[in-house]
Design a protein around this nucleic acid. Structure first.
Lengths: 112, 112
DNA sequence: ACCGCACATGAGTAGTAACGCATATGACTG
DNA sequence: CAGTCATATGCGTTACTACTCATGTGCGGT
């Protein structure tokens, strides 16, 4: 068949991951967690979002197993399930920057 | 301040990229393009989507400079702007699979 | 110039997701 | 065990996005 079609298998799981990462506030939350575990209140302060909103997003991230929650006394600490996620995000950003740089040149060639 | 907070800089561009990739059909389209250039009709056939729908998504991808369009006779050929995108997608999928495998073990430990 | 093919676009609709408000839960303190 | 602090959840609203239908546009052949 078409020689060079990529094996896209089931795109569902991948697209669901992207959907989670597509929300700016969720990205902020993930980044604000960094490599450590932090209580919700820290995330609220770091992101400037409402507590309700942070909890809302944290639930989605938790259900997707991107973050993990554990109680410590009255606090609930959240941390990344897999620290590699940050590395991946970083790599994506680098790709984006390089890509956008290329786009800059491109807009010149665009004449006609 | 908070020692280990990741530099999230502006999450906007990154989240917009993710948003584009979060649509299953858009992912299918990108994968069906593979490393070659293909006319829209090929993509329609490969994905099983309506022509209108494919054009709709291709427009978004084009405006984001993820794909490029060029006319060849009566056809319009689309190709990935940066083939590395496929490599990135592949890497993401591998991460996901490894991650989900870990989750499997995790659900055992979950017993209170 | 007309017609047909490949593709693009505009309008309208339906489904979904984010957010705020109010309230519930769960843990510690007196 | 009443009260308070940290966090979670249900509900209602609003905004966005994918999709379809109908139609427009550009190219090639006759």
């Amino acid at each position: 068949m078409s020689s060079n079609a990529y094996d896209c298998g089931s795109v569902k799981p991948l697209s669901e991951l992207f959907k989670l990462l597509a929300e700016p506030n969720r990205l902020k939350i993930l980044c604000s967690l960094g490599l450590e575990c932090r209580p919700v209140s820290d995330v609220v302060e770091a992101t400037g979002l409402s507590q309700t909103n942070v909890s809302f997003h944290l639930r989605l991230l938790r259900e997707a197993h991107l973050v993990r929650a554990e109680r410590r006394g009255p606090f609930v600490y959240y941390c990344l399930y897999d620290p590699n996620l940050l590395a991946i995000l970083d790599q994506m950003r680098k790709w984006l920057e390089a890509h956008e740089a290329t786009m800059g040149e491109e807009s010149i060639r665009r004449a006609k």
